[in-house]
Write a protein that binds this DNA or RNA. Structure first.
Lengths: 241, 241
DNA sequence: CGCAATATTGAGGATACTCAATGAAGGTGG
DNA sequence: CCACCTTCATTGAGTATCCTCAATATTGCG
């Protein structure tokens, strides 16, 4: 594998989804000049809530979690950061969220000040950034529905479907036959995302597995024999009668 | 009161918080040329999920709710729209949310296409719009914590505190003594926001009232004798030991 | 004044939580 | 290379919080 410093933007596999997706070659060159990569191992924290975050950037590969905690230890995940997702908020030097690498993670980073300059100078960057932020907002609101109104079983299904959809979107693999999903989240991480306890997550996954809606492959890998069937379990009945 | 067509931006009381807040006088004039007002009565729907939304705009006065529904009737409110909040998404002609006037509401509107042009031409508008969107995202994530992890009692307290804070922020009234809060939401609307049932909302409000943490004034009006005390009930212990 | 909408309160029940024990997997060192 | 330990996952029993169903107040409005 190439050392990451040598990776060209034009070869980057998040090229067409990330904050840079609208840039032309000349613009990419400008990003290339100031970008740098950071790598984190699974389990490593990327930032701690309240800490200074000197950079912003995109997830290139791997999965990170973003969560909020209460003083008494309750934790709620507020975002699952997949490749092309953006970390950090321009104009603010700290994050209110803990960000942790769930798997090995590579980030494509910019120091904050230069990135803010890019936002000002390059409409292709700022426009895409705004669009991504609006998409994030929609996603957060959809997740409010999950947390506020769905049963444990529906929550599990919603999580799996949302990751499956993004994965399918990304690899452009048509969703036929078995879908083998890599979900590098512990039961604890899932429970934090879903607003449940570890035990409830475990029980519901066992249940879905017993019923054949999903199958458990090796660790952190789930097989979805029939995505439509799983989607029905989310409670969002997309199939009109 | 002036007919709304005559209201000058410079006299507008959301002038310093809304999407126009960074504009200078010349820029305001440009907004003034294309803006128009719309009024809705309490209970009236502003848009229905999936409907065409030909305009975008800011809440000038009143409160609106934004919610998402499932086919089986479950409803989750995903936003409470207070004065200066923005409605609609540039670049998209429909909303996925139902938006309903909870009280009489006045909106300051722009047709979508001209507004998108404004975003391109005026950095003061686009910059502020981005900032507001990022704030919304933070708020949505904070609400995920409420929905995912808080008890019924904490949820009620969180709702009241968040509205109280915004109100205090707006009127710049120092938070001393009794705080008289106007909250034009039915128990049903609150339950939809909080991910609870009407009955649970009612019981928890009765409970808080019995304990003197809040007092019920006339309809849709709540007295907060001690905001600090109420904040303690949100579960977010802001007071370090 | 009376009806419709909204709110309160009670009784019973279901879903998810807590506490606890057991099992499986992965890494470390003898 | 295997025993041991730690971490993670599963499963069970009992419980609590919130939901459902239902009856009764209260409010606002025609």
């Amino acid at each position: 594998m190439l050392p990451h410093g040598d990776l060209h933007c034009s070869d980057c596999h998040i090229r067409h989804r990330a904050v840079c997706s609208r840039c032309d070659e000349a613009e990419l060159q400008r990003l290339e000049d100031v970008k740098f990569y950071r790598r984190y191992e699974a389990g490593q924290r990327i930032v701690w809530a309240g800490d200074e975050l000197s950079f912003v950037g995109s997830v290139v590969s791997g999965i990170a979690t973003m969560s909020q905690s209460m003083e008494d230890g309750r934790v709620q995940m507020v975002g699952l950061l997949l490749p092309s997702d953006f970390i950090g908020r321009p104009g603010r030097s700290t994050t209110p969220y803990d960000i942790v690498a769930a798997s090995d993670v590579t980030l494509c980073c910019f120091r904050r000040a230069p990135f803010e300059q890019l936002l000002e100078d390059m409409p292709h960057v700022s426009g895409r950034f705004l669009e991504m932020t609006l998409d994030e907002l929609d996603a957060a609101r959809e997740w409010m529905m999950v947390l506020g109104r769905k049963t444990a079983r529906e929550r599990i299904a919603s999580l799996l479907v949302s990751v499956a959809r993004r994965e399918a979107n990304f690899s452009l693999v048509p969703i036929t036959g078995d879908l083998r999903l890599h979900l590098p989240l512990t039961r604890e991480a899932m429970s934090e995302y879903l607003g449940l306890t570890i035990e409830t997550v475990s029980r519901q996954i066992s249940q879905l597995s017993r019923e054949g809606v999903i199958a458990l492959d090796e660790k952190r890998r789930i097989i979805i024999p029939d995505l439509i069937r799983l989607e029905e379990e989310t409670g969002e009945n997309l199939v009109p009668a």
